[in-house]
Design a protein around this nucleic acid. Structure first.
Lengths: 207, 207
DNA sequence: GTCTATAGCTGGATAGAC
DNA sequence: GTCTATCCAGCTATAGAC
């Protein structure tokens, strides 16, 4: 855990409810809408509790970020350990659930030092976990490591996927079908047809 | 111009100063810091002038966005019309100048309807201008259009470039050198060595 | 743990003088 | 075009009762 907890147990239901409310507010109305009053109001709590549990708004943001990052890191680790790791990784990165929240944190992270540091550390962890697994996976499939460095393969899968999802969040999809077909074609050449794919959450309609 | 102007000439120096101040504030402190009082204060003006010129804060945001989008679109059109269009396009997309501002608008655009619409329209225009030029460029270099659809080439150049810049904005660069070498190698194979490259602005250090 | 009350500040937006 | 004055609302954060 990268942030200091002011008060209250880690598994306090009040604490959890406040984090839930803050996350929802960020997604629905943006980080600027996350005030102690509005977070508490949505959670059916009193505003002073935000300060009791988190001390400052920055620490509340960090709690939201860390919880989401941990969950996503676990999902990714599970994907990389599956029997079709490339398909599983691709499906995990194509998940639109976090896109709106990511936009908020990217903006927030450029202006709140502690949030920016958490983003850098978290992204680094994701890439490190991917990089630990990729060489073994590619070797198993007989991919020439000189022609396709693991880090490059990851940028083409994870990086391109993230860019496509950002565009899709704004209704842009020029070339997406072709790009997705290209990447999935490469995965198919290595792993064959996907045997079981998790249903992939798409972006919600704009309000 | 996609936004309604409340009052004042398009070339009013006061109007320009307010847009300048708003843009600076967005980059330095985020969209939440853009208030009529702070914008006016930075421009050495009175807060009421913001409402005189723009009517609402939303229209001020639109003015900032539109001005930047127009400038960037011109720079891209110039690049695509140059004698080494792929190198020029690559250099234009590798420009870090706008990354911080883009983060702000991506977040803002998900919550302010008119801003979101402006982003969608602007990105669509960028891609359309690129797509108008690419087929001719690739054909001139003898690229097989069936293997490399123009839209896919653009996602690999423009899309990947944008993703790399977002990572770099947070100090992340795993695999970047290799990815850049891969893309530049492809460009070099088609256009040879770059003859004249504009100096590429990099991200500023964090404060 | 949860509450009320409060200090001190900042915000969007308008009315109306000059 | 530019200003002051103003309304009403919202904000972070703390003190202290229960």
């Amino acid at each position: 855990m990268a942030f200091a907890r002011r008060n209250g147990a880690e598994d306090s239901s009040t604490r959890t409810a406040l984090i839930d409310a803050a996350e929802q507010l960020m997604v629905e109305e943006g980080y600027a809408a996350v005030s102690s009053r509005r977070v508490a109001g949505r959670a059916g709590m009193n505003a002073a509790l935000v300060y009791y549990y988190f001390g400052t708004m920055d620490d509340l943001f960090l709690a939201v970020f860390s919880r989401r990052a941990e969950r996503n890191l676990e999902a990714q680790a599970e994907a990389l350990a599956s029997d079709q790791p490339l398909w599983a990784l691709w499906d995990v990165t194509r998940d639109q659930t976090n896109t709106a929240l990511n936009f908020e944190f990217l903006a927030l992270g450029k202006h709140r030092k502690v949030v920016g540091a958490a983003i850098t550390e978290s992204c680094f962890n994701f890439r490190r976990v991917q990089l630990d697994a990729m060489p073994g996976i590619l070797k198993r499939y007989g991919v020439d490591a000189d022609a396709w460095a693991p880090a490059v393969v990851l940028l083409l899968m994870d990086g391109m996927s993230r860019f496509l999802m950002m565009e899709e969040a704004f209704g842009l999809d020029i070339g997406h079908t072709e790009m997705i077909a290209l990447i999935e074609g490469q995965i198919r050449a290595l792993e064959g047809e996907p045997r079981s794919r998790k249903p992939r959450p798409r972006a919600k309609k704009r309000a």
